[in-house]
């Protein structure tokens, strides 16, 4: 039984935002709603900077599902966490609970009144009939039912972002980890963007720009 997962390789993500764009385009996600985003920590600090693309991680024990007052979440057989927009009341509880900031809300009125929640569907649509107009309007394309994987991962140029059955992803990632850094596999963040000045470790560290 498959267990759908995302994984993002911090050694490979180059913060191109291709996944974000792919997602936006694939599902016609409205302005202000971001199902996926790329976060860069330690931006500009040589050696310490890394980027990660993040969206809904389709939790096994999903906090969003646990707190939803109308119980509109459901899980597919493959562990994809989906929700029913017809039931959603836009209370925002899932957003408080989610560790990844995945649930998004189109503003539906003045004073930040929340519309129906929108989040990454793992390109699996919603409860409407697969590929129907209603499903596309509410949830976007249903690629999974067409035998395709999420657009973001398939689009990723460095294959930092992977999507699919957790077993397959583990195999891919394990192979990478075993081979990287040797022979022709000299890829990685430090190879691409440089290492801190090793001969003088102390000064390099001191030159970290301090955000105040």
């Amino acid at each position: 039984m498959a267990r759908m997962k995302f994984i993002c390789d911090a050694e490979r993500c180059i913060e191109c935002n291709g996944c974000v764009t792919a997602c936006k385009n694939e599902h016609d996600v409205p302005w202000g709603v971001n199902r996926r985003r790329v976060v860069t920590l330690n931006d500009g600090i040589v050696g310490a900077e890394r980027s990660i693309s993040v969206a809904c991680m389709h939790c096994s024990d999903a906090p969003c599902q646990a707190v939803c007052p109308v119980n509109c979440f459901y899980k597919t057989e493959d562990g994809v966490v989906l929700h029913d927009k017809d039931l959603c009341i836009g209370c925002g509880y899932c957003f408080y609970a989610c560790p990844f900031g995945a649930p998004q809300f189109p503003q539906a009125g003045a004073f930040g009144l929340r519309g129906k929640m929108d989040k990454c569907t793992f390109c699996a649509g919603g409860p409407e009939k697969d590929g129907s107009k209603a499903e596309i309007e509410k949830y976007g394309r249903n690629r999974l039912s067409e035998g395709k994987l999420p657009a973001c991962a398939e689009m990723c140029s460095t294959k930092a972002l992977l999507a699919g059955d957790g077993d397959v992803l583990s195999d891919i990632y394990r192979e990478r980890v075993m081979r990287r850094g040797r022979g022709g596999d000299l890829w990685g963040h430090a190879t691409a963007y440089g290492r801190p000045d090793t001969k003088a470790t102390a000064p390099a560290v001191q030159s970290i720009p301090q955000k105040s």
Binding site: V39, T40, L41, N42, V46, R50, I52
Partner: peptide, 28 residues
């Protein structure tokens, strides 16, 4: 993390500690 890049390349544990600890980075 800067030291890891030199001493243990590809080991990003300090970076992940930052991520886990809700350190705010940059997003567009």
């Amino acid at each position: 993390q800067q030291q890891r890049v030199v001493t243990q390349p590809y080991n990003n544990a300090p970076f992940w500690k930052e991520a886990r600890g809700a350190v705010e980075g940059y997003a567009s």
